[in-house]
Computed example of a mutant assay.
Amino acid sequence: MSVLIAIPARYASVRYPGKPLVELTGATGKKQTLIERSWRAACAVGGVDRVVVATDDDRIRAAAEAFGAEVVMTSSDCANGTERCAEAHAALGGGYEIVVNLQGDAPLTPHWFVEDLVAGLRAAPGAGIATPVLRCDGETLNSFLDDRRHGRVGGTTAVFAADGTALYFSKEVIPFTSKRYGPIEPTPVFHHVGVYAYRPDALAAYPSWPAGPLERHEGLEQLRFMENGGKVLCVEVTARGRQFWELNNPEDVPRLEAMMAQMGLE
């Protein structure tokens, strides 16, 4: 089953303009842009046939081609990464059986997250899209709550049924819990990892659907599938001792660099 990874990247982010070209310093002092680190994370995934950067910006294209990435230019009209992946897949002539959207702000995504995600979608023929979820420990949950207290957009959380079918995603912390958890204690909150695997028919249909009120309020693209009756499969993944965080705000840069230093990532 052929697999394409597309890394959507845009320069004109509302919250963080120029984010893909922000440099992150690794454990050895090596500096690499966010988009390069995300591309290298994608290239480490097993069982993938092709990796491309999908962008509408010539600055990102030049940077990506300089470190050896294949680039697909897409329209500036794409509203989100899913629309950009749909356009990139079409521009490549289609034909891939699974398209993975590895967003360009998650360079710490371990390869097994994506490998487990693809395996989960393959095993669920009724799902058109799958996405990973990671059970929060107390330290991560406290970071989420701290972001919300300070008005920052932090990680996204997910709730899902016993069979993995997503019930809702939110930038608020759901489900509600009043208990205080220790740093490594498992919690009932699941961190939504911003990676998606699509079947091509579901991906191609997505841009034709209007954004619904939930997608508009939350700013979460996956809610469009749910608002149009699609099944989104949540695939639980495990950290295996790795730390994970996305770069959502400028304040996240030192957080990611500290994580890379602790894990010895160059």
Rank of each mutant, 00 (worst) to 15 (best):
M1P: 02
A9T: 02
A9I: 06
S13N: 10
V14R: 15
P17R: 07
G18E: 06
K19T: 11
K19M: 14
V22P: 02
E23K: 13
T28G: 12
T28N: 12
Q32G: 06
T33L: 07
L34Y: 02
R40G: 08
R40F: 11
V45T: 13
G46D: 13
G47N: 04
D49P: 05
V51Y: 05
V51Q: 04
R59W: 08
A64F: 01
A64M: 06
A69R: 04
S75N: 07
G81I: 01
T82K: 09
R84I: 03
L92G: 00
Y96L: 08
I98P: 02
I98G: 00
V99N: 11
Q103N: 09
G104F: 00
L108H: 10
P110D: 09
H111V: 11
H111Y: 14
W112N: 15
F113P: 02
G120A: 02
R122A: 12
P125F: 01
P125Q: 00
G126K: 11
I129A: 14
V133E: 03
D137V: 14
S143I: 04
F144Q: 11
D146R: 15
R148L: 15
H150C: 01
G154Q: 03
G154M: 04
G155L: 14
A158T: 15
G164E: 03
E172H: 12
V173R: 12
T177V: 04
Y181S: 00
G182S: 01
V189P: 02
F190A: 02
H191P: 01
H192P: 07
Y196L: 13
D201K: 14
A202S: 14
L203N: 06
A204I: 09
S208R: 14
W209T: 09
A211K: 12
L214W: 14
R216C: 12
H217T: 14
L223H: 05
R224D: 01
F225W: 10
F225D: 10
L233K: 11
L233F: 07
V235I: 15
E236I: 05
E236G: 12
R242G: 01
F244W: 10
V253F: 08
L256N: 01
Q262W: 06
M263G: 05
G264W: 10
E266F: 06
